[in-house]
Amino acid sequence: MVNVGKCIYKVPNGKLLKVTVEFEEDTISRVQIKGDFFIHPEESLDDLEVALKGKDYTRKTIGDIVGDFFARSGLIAFGITPKAVVDAILKCKEDVV
């Protein structure tokens, strides 16, 4: 069974993240990260969402993938942090619609 978790997460000193996670047991099927933040280049966020597909829904796995994404050379972000993205994705597990 696919569960859908949603959460709205205010980044400390930053913008508002609106995250949706579809997952089956402990595996992520799909993540959408939305909000009024800035990421340059903009298209790169799609890569993060793709990279999370099929991965374990655990802090360790998500933390590594999100950390690698924000550490990409040339990636610049405002109003959004790796920690906020990880926290918001995990929080979706608690708020299943």
Binding site: K18, Q32, I33, K34, G35, D36, F37, I39, E42, L45
Partner: peptide
Amino acid sequence: IGYFQGLEE
């Protein structure tokens, strides 16, 4: 809306 926002949201 911003690039990363959900339209219907």
